[in-house]
Amino acid sequence: MNSDGDTDGDTDSDIGGSGYSLEQLADYLYRGRTPPIPEIDENAECQAMLDSLERLGTLSSELVSKDALDAPGVDETWLATLLATIGREVRAGRDIPYAATNPNTRLTITEGAIRELVRAAGDSVDGVLVGTCSIEGDLDGGGDAGEGDVAESTITVSLTISVVLSAPVTTLAQAVRERVHSELLKHTELHVSAINVTVVDVHMLTTAIEDES
């Protein structure tokens, strides 16, 4: 290793006679080395220092990644407690009415329950994983629950899905549409005008393939 003595303790002021300090070099690096500064770009010591700074940054990230790899896996008790905590805050959303004949009776389903239903219906298609699910439209149906004459609400369901390419995408999307529609017909009184399915991702069952024995 070649240490020429004069960079020692003196790195702050001037690197390789370029007139730039270590701090200025670091700023240059953080800016993505733009706009180009010829005095730095053409100076071998500056270039070595920039590479070194860059490596130390990368190395710092690697250090954290290595810590993570070396650490024992996620503590299951901790995870269970965490999930129990968040599970208490349910994303119920709005109450969507069902028709009821007794004026003193109000029957509803939560938006959260419908989303879960839609998600499960989409997931049930082989090779499909649902991402987001949103329900738009007049969920209250304009009808006053309890009056016994809830008007049919017209809604649009939009889903994003991730697929394993086991069948043509359009076939998968159509299957999702049909399953979602039939579940909504069974468990809600909403009138579904459209089910939009957007394929956002193609995913691989990598772990599954490795596990096959």
Binding site: G112, D201, M204
Partner: peptide
């Protein structure tokens, strides 16, 4: 094996 994006989207919906 799902992507972060899919998992985060589902989490946002309450999964």
């Amino acid at each position: 094996s799902a992507s972060d994006a899919i998992l985060a989207a589902r989490s946002a919906d309450g999964d």
